[in-house]
Computed example of a mutant assay.
Amino acid sequence: MNWNPSLTSCAALTACLVGCGGGNATPGGEFVLGSTTTTLNNATTTTQLTPGQAQGVYEGAASNGRYFNTLVLDNDQYYILYGTLSGEVFSVAGVIAGTGQASNGSFASSDLKDFPAGGMPLSGTMSATYAPGASFNSVVTRGGAAVTFSGVVLANTSYTYNTPARLAEVSGTWAATALTGESVSLEIAANGTYAATSLGCNFSGSFVPRASGKNVFNFTASFGPAPCVLANQTVTGHAVTYLLGNGKRQLLVAASDAARSVATLLAGIR
């Protein structure tokens, strides 16, 4: 997912954070079944919304050559993690996040935020089509440029979205990498709580299996004092883990603060 490398750069941040411009949507906001009404040439049409129909984890190669994983939740919140794939190691270069609306095979989002490593965030929009549990094909437009992400369910992994997340699959020690390249040491207890450190910044939080029974964890991180960039602040988000074809396990975490002004991203493999 090779976004324009000439983007305005921002300083690398301690404890796996990228600082970005604010937004109005709150991560984790729940959608309820509803409808939208459109009036065109004095004719009114009503579109029935179907939240959760697009949910799942999808992978593929974007139109710019970048590898990606897309996570769409049961409330139509989504993340697109993009980067490079070497062998089976996913090196993440950025994350796109937002909330959308699903309706009969179509998906739309107007609050998209792209958080690239080393760059300022960009706002944009998404339009997508989906086949429930099979594919999610999106066109992301931001900064005047459009990139297509054609995704299908994860191949060559043990991952099944429609099974409950298991803490036993994430507990233990992880050597992870932050979006800005810092190493992060992560120790996750059997109950999902964890302690972590990166470049002198200590933070802690939890991985909690989602109440929906899907194979996704709700994630929180509370940061300590300086040198943490988000000193004494908390971010929330989601995480997935899956066993790769080579027997190693991948952990992917994406989160932001409530104002969506900064994004946190962790990628670990063990």
Score class of each variant (00 low, 15 high):
T44G: 10
T44I: 14
T45W: 14
T45V: 12
T46A: 03
T47E: 12
Q48E: 10
Q48F: 00
Q48V: 15
Q48H: 10
L49H: 12
L49I: 06
T50H: 09
G52C: 09
Q53V: 10
Q53S: 15
A54S: 14
A54H: 07
A54L: 13
A54F: 01
Q55R: 15
G56C: 13
G56W: 10
Y58K: 11
A62Q: 13
N64I: 12
V72F: 07
V72Y: 01
L73G: 01
L73D: 02
D74Y: 03
N75K: 07
D76T: 03
Y78V: 01
Y78S: 08
I80N: 06
L81N: 07
L81I: 01
G83C: 02
L85E: 04
S86Y: 07
S86Q: 12
G87A: 06
E88G: 00
E88T: 14
V89N: 08
S91T: 15
V92K: 11
A93Y: 04
A93N: 12
G94W: 11
G94Y: 03
V95L: 09
A97N: 10
A97L: 14
G98Q: 05
G98T: 11
Q101S: 15
S103D: 06
N104S: 12
N104D: 05
A108T: 06
S109Q: 02
S110V: 01
